[in-house]
């Protein structure tokens, strides 16, 4: 398993990416319609391109066109009419594919949070059914069991798991409750609104929890929340479990992350299955990495294993 950080990986593959994307775009621009598969990227940011590059390099040896929704806004249905398989990278591309995908096509949505995929599937459920479109996904986020397993390794005597939810992440609650019940944790949470005072809402949760799980919600998890969570974590000596490497650098004790390469690799494997005629169910990537901040762990007075050991333990559990 690679140990490079996301930032390093992105830079290392920059040239390879550029070539791959360029080739793909050239194919689209020259109207070579021989390909039956389309790699649709939500944007031209390096993260999307990194996912795409890994899919192309590790996927089946088939001809794949590459494009962006913003390039296909006119006659969108016609543009997608020749593609039997659409690999949509990110939310915007997935929505575009569900909106304009052709009859009997397969959409492999990747690099997308589970809730977002579910929301889009519901939104376009009529069209998907009407056009007999098959959909599947490789989620970007982590399965709750994996996060809670990491939480239990960070804090072996974990009993109470604290977290806050926003209007969007509230939908995670059933999964959280089930996973916590399976592991014998009790949940301690609040739902935040923009008008809330973060201290008054979060501090009681923090004070009454053994570990705090940071759940991203674009409505309520902004830099203000991020700042106060770190402050309260240090103050109350309650470790934060985050969702990104950078938040760990900033002061969370650990995070479970999936890099664009991890996602691309697993998407390529799913693409092999689809090419073979199967439609695998939507799933999380089995490839992931653990990142830790030992300095923060020391400040909190907890002893944690190395990131590699934590990762190995979780992988062994999942393999069983």
């Amino acid at each position: 398993m690679q140990t490079a950080t996301l930032e390093v990986v992105i830079k290392a593959s920059a040239y390879r990416l550029a070539i791959c994307i360029l080739v793909g775009l050239l194919l689209v621009c020259t109207n070579l319609k021989a390909a039956e598969s389309l790699l649709l990227l939500s944007g031209d940011s390096p993260t999307y391109e990194s996912v795409a590059s890994t899919i192309i390099s590790q996927g089946p040896a088939i001809h794949i066109d590459t494009s962006y929704p913003s390039h296909l806004t006119k006659n969108s249905e016609q543009h997608l009419s020749s593609y039997k398989i659409i690999i949509s990278v990110g939310s915007k591309a997935t929505e575009f594919a569900m909106q304009y995908g052709r009859k009997n096509s397969t959409i492999l949505s990747t690099f997308i949070p589970r809730l977002q995929f579910q929301r889009l599937s519901e939104k376009y459920s009529n069209r998907i059914a009407e056009k007999h479109i098959s959909t599947t996904a490789v989620f970007l986020d982590q399965p709750m069991q994996r996060q809670l397993r990491l939480a239990s390794l960070i804090k072996p005597n974990l009993k109470k798991l604290g977290f806050t939810l926003g209007p969007n992440s509230e939908k995670m609650l059933p999964e959280l409750k089930k996973s916590a019940e399976d592991m014998g944790f009790s949940l301690n949470y609040q739902t935040l609104a923009l008008s809330d005072n973060p201290i008054q809402r979060i501090q009681p949760i923090m004070d009454d929890s053994d570990l705090f799980l940071v759940i991203p919600d674009p409505s309520t998890f902004n830099k203000t929340t991020a700042k106060w969570l770190l402050y309260m974590s240090l103050r109350s000596k309650v470790p934060l479990l985050a969702f990104s490497h950078n938040y760990v650098k900033a002061g969370a004790v650990a995070a479970c992350i999936t890099t664009p390469e991890d996602i691309g690799r697993y998407t390529a494997e799913q693409l092999h299955l689809i090419e073979g005629g199967a439609t695998p169910p939507p799933t999380y990537s089995p490839y992931f990495k653990i990142v830790t901040n030992p300095k923060v762990a020391r400040q909190l007075g907890i002893s944690i294993s190395t990131a590699e050991n934590l990762q190995r333990q979780i992988q062994e559990d999942e393999n069983q």
């Binding site: 930032e7 944007g43 939310s91 949070p113 970007l140 674009p218 830099k223 950078n246």
Partner: peptide
């Protein structure tokens, strides 16, 4: 840096008009 950095910039840039959780919420930079 957390104090002075907005961490959801990518979300707003990439999925304007959406307030739903986006993939970039997981991969933002600080």
């Amino acid at each position: 840096s957390v104090v002075t950095t907005t961490i959801f910039f990518a979300c707003s840039a990439q999925s304007a008009g959406q307030s739903e959780l986006s993939e970039l919420d997981y991969l933002n930079d600080l």
